[in-house]
Design a protein around this nucleic acid. Structure first.
Length: 475
RNA sequence: GUCCCCAUCGUCUAGUCUGGCCAAGGACACCGCCCUUUCACGGCGGCGACGGGGGUUCAAAUCCCCCUGGGGACGCCA
């Protein structure tokens, strides 16, 4: 039997961290077993479902590169199927009509809560004989929960038993005739031949209800696997409060999609002491046996570390399109090619996000350098830096345009160090400030190479003028 | 309130099923040192946990029970 899993979000918001991990585990499990992964949009709640949310979910799936084999299916287009199933149960006496109004139910529930009783439906319409009298009145269809208890073996949590007295006779069809979640899920998972239902453990309590419905409808049961929740740093269920909500927001924040994938995979699942996994490795190694039972706290620091790791190990070529796009948004137009790649290579090891990288390389594209106050004051001192910088400008000008590379630049530096009897740091820092405006940048030779001869000389000239214009120092 | 689930460093986790190899390993974060033209990267080291109590056993992080703590569910939401 081929494995078939599904991700079934309701389009009432974007694809968030928790949903993305559920999708990922379904995806990995299906791929690992050479099965199918299906996307289903659970949009039976017309009030809250929106097209924007549906699109946001697609965007998230796309960004994370989780491709699905079938779907997207929309529950809103399958209402006949659900209705048919509900009517069948009604016919067989496994479901019944309930004439209680929503208002009555809410009142009773609140009263029960207040008195410390279980806020469960009291089954008052279960056996009414005079249903005929109610003819014409709106009603819902409720599933008749039988006596006994349900035990199922969860692939992650192990055996779980729930007494039926704890389960209420749930509404399957609303008074407007539309189906509710527990019915749609069962009908869809059964008719789509889902073999493994992998979802958040907030659904554990729904599982016995659904198993009972599978049985009532005569369907074969799938396997169930309930994933532990992801919590925020306050140990509360993860929400927007804890940082970015939508996964695509992480793209905007400069994260690589694979960093998020790797992070999400390791939150709740492990493979010995390994931390870094390519998608291929995840597919190869993923197993529900290695999924933990306890909930995990979302740790942005570790995500950041992974992001940094993947930036470091990406090639400049791989990053360049994204970086160029981001530069464009800051008003800088750059062509693809070796120059931007050299710039990216210089910055890869020190940028934890692509946003940081764009900020860090901004100096290459500005018309004029803006000196930060502290470094300028410290390093652009005429009495120390003026002569070396002037000499450097000449030495660099002497290098042939075609061989203006780090090696040539380094030997130009070396000549000056000997002449002025300076250590490299004493020369590199003033140069760095002159070129970048800050005291922090990649290696100075690489920076000069990436900047190019003309711009380097222009900026050295600017720094020289700047120092000359300075009032005489008291030192 | 009732039911369900869970419990190893601050966090993610290995180890738990199949008790001894665990005076508990790795990773993130943090701290220190080294490398060094700055910042990073990297290297080395440090800090730091089996929630508590009872059992079972020659032996318990590992098995059992209770307590505590945390999470979840109880909708004409999904």
């Amino acid at each position: 039997m081929t494995v078939r899993t599904r991700f079934a979000p309701s389009p009432t918001g974007y694809l968030h961290i928790g949903g993305a991990r559920t999708a990922l585990f379904n995806y990995l499990f299906a791929r690992h077993h050479g099965g199918k992964f299906i996307l289903r949009i659970e949009d039976t709640d017309l009030e809250r479902s929106t097209e924007e949310s549906t699109q946001a979910i697609f965007d998230g799936m796309d960004w994370l590169e989780m491709d699905y084999d079938e779907g997207p299916f929309y529950q809103s287009k399958r209402s006949d199927l659900y209705r048919e199933a509900a009517l069948k149960l009604l016919d067989k006496g496994l479901a019944y009509k309930c004439f209680c109004t929503a208002k009555e139910l809410t009142e009773r529930r609140e009263a029960a809560m207040k008195e410390g009783r279980a806020p469960r439906y009291d089954r008052r319409c279960r056996d009414i004989k005079d249903a005929g009298e109610q003819e014409g009145a709106p009603y819902t269809v409720r599933f008749r929960i039988p006596e006994g208890k349900t035990i199922f073996k969860d692939l992650i949590k192990g055996p779980i038993a729930i007494e039926h007295v704890e389960i209420e006779d749930l509404v399957m069809l609303r008074s407007d005739g539309t189906a509710t979640y527990n019915l749609t899920v069962v009908v869809d998972d059964a008719t789509m031949n889902i073999t493994h239902v992998i979802r958040g453990d907030d659904h554990i309590n729904n599982t016995p209800k659904q198993i009972l419905m599978y049985e009532a409808l005569g369907y074969d049961l799938p396997e169930f696997a309930h994933l532990p929740m992801i919590l925020g740093s306050d140990k509360k269920r993860l929400s927007k409060r804890h940082g970015a909500g939508s996964v695509t927001e992480y793209h905007d924040l400069g994260y690589l999609s694979h960093a998020l994938i790797n992070y999400l995979a390791r939150l709740g699942w492990s493979h010995g002491d390994d931390e870094i996994f390519s998608m291929e490795e995840l597919i190869e190694k993923f197993s529900l046996d290695s999924v933990g039972k306890s909930s995990g706290v979302f740790n942005p620091e570790k995500l950041l570390w992974l992001n940094h790791h993947y930036i470091k190990t990406s090639t400049a070529k791989e990053l360049s399109a994204d970086i160029i796009e981001r530069l464009k948004k800051t008003g800088v137009t750059v062509e693809e090619g070796s120059r931007i790649e050299a710039i990216i290579d210089g910055e890869k090891e020190r940028s934890k996000t692509l946003i940081e990288m764009v900020e860090a390389i901004g100096f290459y594209f500005k018309d004029k350098v803006e000196y930060e106050e502290k470094p300028a004051k410290k390093f652009l001192k005429p009495e120390k830096a003026l002569a070396p910088l002037e000499a450097l400008r000449e030495a660099l000008a002497d290098i042939d345009d075609s061989s203006f590379d780090a090696t040539q630049i380094e030997s130009a530096f070396q000549g000056l160090l000997d002449k002025f009897e300076l250590k490299l740091g004493k020369l590199a820092q003033p140069v760095r400030v002159a070129l970048t405006g800050t005291s922090v940048s990649p290696g100075i030779f690489e920076t000069i190479e990436a900047m190019g001869k003309d711009m380097t000389i222009d900026r050295l000239t600017e720094a020289i003028s700047y120092m000359k214009a300075l009032p005489p120092s008291a030192e």
